[in-house]
Design a binder for these strands. Structure first.
Lengths: 356, 356
DNA sequence: GTCGGTCGTGTAAACGATTCCACGACTCGC
DNA sequence: GCGAGTCGTGGAATCGTTTACACGACCGAC
């Protein structure tokens, strides 16, 4: 592969001049510039990013460590992150933690070894020593979706409180009183918060959230299935199951079906995170939609601000309820947008917002 | 950040010795080794992968350029690729082409600039000059799922001919005679092949595939919707629509619903690529399942063979039919496996195979 | 006509690792 | 006791860039 020296030789100038042309430094004569450009063209020369990074101490690369690539919420997030990063001149390397702290550490470590300029993380747990070190040692970092308390790291996330309240109102209005939740891991912020928001909203309607109505999940489908089976085995099963993410909702749907029961007639179902597929399930699933694309873009902007020396900002965007048939009401015809148009406006899956 | 020099100073040895310890070169005294290790520990030293790559001319990184991250088939593929690569000591950088040749080129270019050791591509088109150059100039490369003809590049893919034949048999058995297909872009191998396999299978049953029954799609949901609308507008609409990928099937389902029609009563639907969600749609969708995980792993093995100087092998694995309710038959209870267990055996979504 | 300034260019020193080569200290065999 | 290995170690070159610095040529101003 041709190097800068070959170009310099071909153009009859020094490597310094070639470099200056490539980085369009002002003081290069028009003549030298055209000769260099011709040589570059002739040799098919492309600068070696590795060497450049070593010298400049920057890779123009962002690391993104997400909890689960198979979760459509996170792929959507990853996609918007890459789009915004590309627009700002950065590349993205994605690491999939698969909800496993050890894998998460593995990816953080390799990304750090590669000297990425900044790290975007949706932490799987409360923070390994490695992660805490990285954050404290000054690696530019931003949390997205989930975060770790007690660190001076900006957080870009969406706040589901109001939407969860809307959901409970919706369910209450449909006559449901025994509401259960499948929670995410307590080590994650989203795992805890969603339960708290739910409990709080229930309280506003004079309803309690008994411990047996809290299923412990891990954001994966299998755990949603198991938690739902346990609910159905209760002497007094809940009338509604609210899954704290979309994969656990899928597992819940499986469990209900496997018993020969029907949604919403026998039991209602709702989920946190709206995804295009929820429009097409049987029945369509009521969900709380996050502005996923905007979240990813805001996270990249915050991180790049941090990297380039501007003060980064934490961002919190509201989530909203999208009511469908899985809780009992027949929704009116709703616009079915399959996916967010590339890099343009939200929302992703559907647009009607229920009023309590 | 501590460098090898700092470690050398701390341990009272030369950088050469530190390097030897780190790469466990045999000729280092036990004493020096322990001192170096202690210094590494004390300083929290991690080797700079950028510098190492520059010197050794290898990055231990694979590039993966896929056509669309939002397509569950490709995320599944990406996940298995990363898993196998990690097991072999490589990292993976994913580039999402979004079915756009220009974006594909962008990613190929940046990956090449970063001097990745090898490239895994599922080409979006027939091959840009850049891609052809890369292949011919000797960059280790393997095609996965789709490929470009006329290049000496190994291909890892699945062969759907038998499964498509099974599908047509299944449809014919259910009494369907007017069968339509939504094709992928003619510039892709999978775009062309699936139509050909379908036409061939129809021929075996004495059925023709008229041009009006071939919809032109681009593997995205929106195009599936439009093609289906066109089918429904025909004087004699088809009885079955076979979508060449899962997203177009989703679009087709939308279009049917939007007209107030029902699947399978008014029109039947089948798809190429099986994904976990197809079990949960209304109705569950009949699909042709590829051994996606095994495809990803085989592709990585082929590429790493190529990189490490062993002769790489092209691999072709069979796809198989998974019959569900969307074509008219009520399937018996089928085992519902939501996702392939991490890095273990196929299959991904469902297991029953229909017999003609 | 000289002086100071600008402009274009080249030389060479980094960046952080790996690795070839040389060299001193031992060991062993005769 | 001496020559030939072996072993552990360090010095220094190298990978492909960027960039500080020096320098010569040219220009305009006095």
């Amino acid at each position: 592969m041709a190097s800068i020296k070959d170009v310099a030789a071909e153009a009859g100038v020094s490597v310094a001049t070639v470099s200056r042309v490539l980085n369009d430094h002002p003081s290069v004569s028009a003549d030298a510039r055209t000769r260099v450009l011709a040589a570059v063209e002739a040799l098919g020369y492309r600068p070696n990013a590795v060497a450049r990074s070593l010298r400049t101490d920057q890779t123009r690369t962002l690391g993104l460590v997400i909890s689960d690539v198979l979760n459509p919420y996170f792929t959507h997030l990853a996609r918007s992150v890459e789009e915004e990063a590309r627009a700002l001149g950065y590349s993205v390397i994605i690491g999939n933690a698969d909800e496993r702290p050890d894998l998460q550490d593995h990816h953080v470590r390799t990304l750090l070894d590669r000297r990425i300029d900044g790290l975007l993380v949706s932490p799987t747990d409360g923070g390994s020593p490695l992660m805490l070190d990285a954050a404290r040692s000054g690696t530019p970092m931003v949390f997205v979706d989930r975060w770790i308390a007690g660190l001076d790291v900006p957080v870009v996330r969406s706040d589901g409180h109001a939407a969860v309240h809307d959901l409970v109102a919706h369910l209450h209005g449909l006559g449901h009183r025994r509401l259960a939740i499948i929670a995410g891991p307590a080590a994650t912020t989203t795992g805890r918060e969603r339960v708290e928001a739910f409990r709080q909203a229930l309280g506003a309607y004079g309803l309690a959230l008994p411990d047996v109505y809290i299923g412990q999940g891990d954001f994966q489908a299998q755990s949603g299935r198991r938690a739902t089976e346990r609910f159905l085995d209760l002497a007094e099963p809940p009338e509604v199951v609210f899954a704290a993410d979309n994969l656990m909702a899928l597992g819940a749907l499986d469990a209900v079906r496997a018993r020969g029961l029907r949604v919403p007639d026998d039991i209602a179902l709702a989920a946190f995170d709206d995804i295009p597929w929820f429009v097409h399930t049987d029945p369509p699933i009521t969900a709380i939609a996050q502005p996923t694309g905007e979240l990813g873009r805001a996270a990249v902007r915050a991180l790049v601000d941090r990297i380039e020396g501007r003060p980064p900002e934490s961002v919190t965007l509201p989530a909203r309820l999208v009511a469908r048939r899985s809780c009992g009401e027949t929704a009116p015809h709703e616009p079915q947008v399959l996916q967010e148009p590339p890099a343009s406006t939200e929302p992703s899956a559907a647009t009607n917002r229920s009023q309590p």
